[in-house]
Design a protein around this nucleic acid. Structure first.
Lengths: 113, 113
DNA sequence: CTTGCATTTAACCGACTGGTTATTTAACTT
DNA sequence: AAGTTAAATAACCAGTCGGTTAAATGCAAG
């Protein structure tokens, strides 16, 4: 799924994750978002475009500023993928674990009998 | 956190996600993993290295083959980050929603009084 | 010890990334 | 209309990515 590509790629950058964390505290303008970072404004603008393409945020005009807000739905897609797979993985490991325990107990039985 | 960078970057590629999904069904050799894809073996080998660096899989020698297995712990790191943030985001949106509802009801009260 | 198989490494390629500075666009202020 | 402010775009750069083919490695079996 191409949506997942974009979401995970967007989340793979620490600056972008920090921007998202900041936005979780409330909407902010591009300038406000850029302020804590030591990179240029165009760099932040590019990060915001990546986040917007990944559907993680929206930017809306407000006078001469652009206000950024989170869009929580997209994160759910990624979260769902991970959780679904994690469940599969762990089931698999649980089965393996049970199998190994069974082997173990059989050997013990043989050893004792 | 650098671990998150690697994990999300690894998950951002559809071939790598497919490999993980395959491995959820059980361990597999490099050749077995490569078989369903239309790319060369070295390409798969590189993907596996990315997954290994991200700590999502381990490769162990078995005769002249390398057997790949999932390592579920790393996925938890990513899952935790997403879930934690998702909760923050949604709380934020819940608060905003409550606030807007309150505004609405006040205006209604004023209009009626 | 040579042959064969499974996989990795090397060298290379075009496309993309994250950064820069300089320029342009858009909207408010005077 | 001219100036100021906020942000985006353009053009560029070094580095990484995902892919290739060809060569090297590791191991088992004759």
């Amino acid at each position: 799924m191409q949506q997942l590509d974009h979401t995970f790629a967007a989340l793979a950058d620490p600056t972008r994750r920090a921007i998202l964390a900041r936005l979780a505290l409330g909407e902010a303008t591009v300038g406000e978002l850029a302020e804590p970072f030591e990179v240029s404004l165009p760099a932040i603008s590019k990060h915001l475009k990546v986040l917007e393409t990944a559907d993680l945020i929206i930017r809306e005009k407000r006078a001469q500023q652009r206000v950024c807000k989170l869009k929580p739905e997209a994160l759910k897609t990624a979260s769902d993928w991970i959780e679904q797979n994690r469940r599969m993985w762990e089931e698999r490991f649980d089965r393996l674990d049970a199998y190994l325990r069974e082997l173990q107990s059989r050997e013990t039985d043989n050893g004792n009998g």
